[in-house]
Simulated assay, not measured.
Amino acid sequence: MSTEKGPDHSRRKERSRQAILTATRTLVAEEAYEKITIEAIAARAGVGKQTIYRRWPSKSAVVFAALLALSEDADQSVALPDTGDLEADLKLVMRATAEEFADPAFDRLIRAVNTEIANDASLAAEYREKLAQPLEEAKRARLRSAQKAGQIAADADLDLALEMLYAPLFQRWLHRSGPVTAAYADSLVDATLRAFGP
């Protein structure tokens, strides 16, 4: 009886998945989003388009998966720094967020995802569940810690504080209404801490 193993299908599937996600990110960085097709992604990844359709139902689902994979690759845990210095911790995170938005490759990818979730309720729900909610809960947890330490008012509405902190940055980026810089990120932290301080 032969003890030789057949091909490792799971390893081959994972290689194909990574090739598809990488090809998607590359194409989004290079092309106008509306010109990108499943066929183009498949050609760039070196797979048949049915390989993509077996895993994802649409271009928007592939693009979202490519974005989600970036956050998974960056760090499996979602937590904000907690050094005890709320201002420094928030400025570190907000500057990193501004830097991400300023990165042309990330900018094009997140704009593509936002285009799709605006018109696809099921993708919007998946985005909220897999990406937005875990990030929001990590941010809320950091503010709760600051509240317990007396750095934020005991009766502060933490959801409102998060909106004041992040929404202007996102809106400025989305509408291209001004530069998304470290200085602007710092100013949002300063204003939010003034509004919600003890």
Rank of each mutant, 00 (worst) to 15 (best):
T97M: 09
E34T: 07
R55P: 00
R15C: 07
L92D: 13
A19R: 15
E39H: 10
L27A: 04
R176M: 06
L70P: 00
D85M: 03
A65M: 06
I152V: 15
A96L: 13
Y166N: 10
A132P: 14
R128S: 10
A183F: 03
N114S: 07
T26M: 13
Y33P: 00
R25A: 09
L123H: 07
L135Y: 12
A141I: 05
K5P: 13
A40E: 05
I41S: 00
G6I: 02
L67F: 14
L68H: 12
A138V: 09
A66R: 00
I117R: 02
A79L: 13
A40P: 12
I36C: 09
Q147T: 06
L158C: 12
A156G: 03
F106A: 12
A32Q: 12
L67T: 02
A154D: 04
L174I: 11
L165K: 05
I117Q: 06
K59R: 15
S58F: 06
F170R: 09
T115H: 14
A102W: 15
E14H: 14
P179I: 08
G84L: 05
I52A: 00
M1G: 15
E30T: 00
L68A: 08
A61V: 10
L188F: 00
P81K: 04
R172N: 04
T97Y: 11
L86R: 06
S187D: 11
T24Q: 04
I36E: 01
D107T: 01
T3D: 10
G178I: 09
L70W: 02
